[in-house]
Simulated assay, not measured.
Amino acid sequence: MSLGTEETKAVDIVKRALDLGINYLDTADLYDFGQNEELVGKAIKGQRDKVVLATKAGNKWTQGKEGWEWDPSKQLIQSAVKDSLRRLQTDYIDLYQLHGGTIDDPTEETIEAFEELKKEGYIREYGISSIRPNVIKRFVENSSIVSVMMQYSLLDTRPEEWLDYLHEKKISVIARGPLAKGLLSDNGLDKLRNKFKGKDFLDYSHEELENLLPKLLNITGDNPLQATAFHYCLAHPAVAAVIPGASSIEQLEANVNAMNKQTLSEQEYTIIKELVKRSNYDSHRN
């Protein structure tokens, strides 16, 4: 999502990611109106076998209307996949995800669409991108999803109530936003003061973040704060991947360097759990 639309730069970032051993790429048909998929397709050409390729559907753009419309219908999903395959220059998608979801959706129809695409070989597996408890539970109980993408970080622990449950069901979690808009990086305090300019972040007030971020930095020692952020999310076996995104090769390399640092010790993990808030998703529960 953060690649941008400058072709040479975007393609170079993806190619460098592959060189560094990254093997999971996650895009969506609405990112830059499909251009993101096109750029990813160009970047992985000739290297498709190195990549677990994921994209998403469920949003419709109609010329003349303002904004995207939510549409989880079978017709849209089975039409959208063919457009995504064309843009990605591939004949199959490893993980096709529903890009959202509400309890009022025609879920049976949506699941039927994904199951047929799987049977026909257009997709290998499917999942959802949602943190809504009632949506997650409905798909877990009625479909063969293999993944749930959720915003998850040290500063947003809402998914943690689901980790044991999903792990028992053999469903993986993909953690998006693990760096909390850059707050969980070594220059997080600068971002807080300059980018956020006094604003809060989810359950944390600006003042609380001013107090918390230095404490998290102290835990990391010589390791970058990104390393702590990534390994915190990956500590639970349900979490299969973290996807921080990168808008430059420098950011990409910093993320990979952080990922390659040693995992958190049990003591470090315990200290972090005592410092951060336990958050819950209060709405969309029934």
Rank of each mutant, 00 (worst) to 15 (best):
34 G>M: 10
64 G>L: 05
136 I>P: 11
269 Y>V: 07
212 L>Q: 09
101 G>N: 05
164 D>M: 08
235 A>T: 08
196 F>G: 06
51 V>Y: 09
221 G>R: 07
50 K>W: 08
252 L>N: 10
217 L>A: 13
35 Q>T: 15
76 L>S: 09
30 L>K: 11
58 G>K: 03
82 K>I: 06
266 E>D: 10
116 E>D: 13
133 P>T: 13
13 I>E: 14
238 A>Q: 02
89 Q>W: 00
18 L>H: 08
268 E>F: 02
247 S>A: 11
152 Y>L: 07
139 F>L: 06
135 V>I: 08
114 F>P: 02
80 A>C: 01
153 S>A: 01
230 F>A: 09
19 D>E: 15
41 G>L: 06
98 L>K: 04
202 L>V: 14
118 K>I: 00
277 K>I: 12
214 P>V: 01
18 L>Y: 12
259 M>Q: 07
65 K>M: 13
115 E>R: 01
76 L>H: 13
192 L>A: 08
104 D>C: 00
2 S>T: 09
184 L>I: 06
99 H>P: 03
226 Q>T: 13
45 K>T: 11
29 D>P: 04
212 L>Y: 13
63 Q>Y: 04
99 H>D: 10
5 T>H: 11
135 V>L: 02
21 G>I: 03
195 K>F: 12
253 E>D: 15
17 A>Q: 02
97 Q>G: 10
246 A>F: 03
198 G>R: 06
85 L>T: 11
14 V>G: 03
43 A>L: 01
56 K>G: 08
261 K>E: 02
281 Y>F: 10
267 Q>S: 15
179 L>F: 06
272 I>P: 04
276 V>I: 15
20 L>C: 05
259 M>N: 02
187 N>T: 14
249 I>M: 11
232 Y>N: 03
7 E>Q: 14
278 R>L: 14
223 N>E: 12
30 L>H: 09
113 A>F: 02
178 P>S: 08
147 S>V: 09
101 G>C: 14
23 N>L: 01
231 H>F: 14
216 L>I: 04
27 T>Y: 03
1 M>D: 12
3 L>T: 05
243 I>N: 04
15 K>T: 09
2 S>N: 15
244 P>S: 10
281 Y>N: 11
101 G>A: 10
106 P>T: 05
116 E>C: 00
215 K>A: 07
